[in-house]
Write a protein that binds this DNA or RNA. Sequence first.
DNA 1: ACAGTCAGTAAGCAAAGACTTACCGTAAGT
DNA 2: ACTTACGGTAAGTCTTTGCTTACTGACTGT
Lengths: 108, 108
Amino acid sequence: MAYAAALRALADPTRRAVFERLSRAPASVGEVAAGLPVSRPAVSQHLKALKRAGLVIDRSEGARRVYQLDPDGLGELRRWLDQFWDQALEAFKHELEQPKTLRGRRKS
Amino acid sequence: MAYAAALRALADPTRRAVFERLSRAPASVGEVAAGLPVSRPAVSQHLKALKRAGLVIDRSEGARRVYQLDPDGLGELRRWLDQFWDQALEAFKHELEQPKTLRGRRKS
DNA sequence: ACAGTCAGTAAGCAAAGACTTACCGTAAGT
DNA sequence: ACTTACGGTAAGTCTTTGCTTACTGACTGT
């Protein structure tokens, strides 16, 4: 059920920015905060949420604390999504074969 | 940028329940609401959010309105996730080669 | 036309949550 | 030891949001 925490964590734009920042390179809390329009404690709280979701891990490096991505949470999210992917595709194809009044926004 | 809306949509437990319900079989608003502990208008609002996120489509079927999954939003989410997957794996492997003080919660 | 069903919208409320500032540990340097 | 840098936590505020109960509109059948 950790995918729930991962989804909640990645739903917030700022937290997503933190996550994407760490995807480029591991960084400390201060380094991450320096590139964002929010305070350092805010980033610290976001990192705590990301860590509980299994999306990042941290290691102590002297007085600093370096964060980087953790494949665990990401992998669980991927598996959860894939669970619906095939069903969605097949159901959608089946829909196209019987063209009733489609109301969804189609991309093209 | 639709993955943002998809993440926001799937972050809510109730909305996720609606989504998972539709993944089993297309259903009307009332049918979905019948299986959930919330009111029908609540489900209607959730479906609106899911639709805007490109996660579901709906078709009019008489007075009813049948919803089903839309591969679009799901696919975009998958692509967004995969963007980080390889980086996370490689960074993590690199971490294991230099075993400093790992502080993340490991699964085993 | 009228009654019944289905579903989207409006308004309002209460809970969640994303920020801030202030404070308190901890580690390294002089 | 003192100072400085770094980072997590507490407390408080303000916005967001998920829910409810109305209400309104649309379609179907008698």
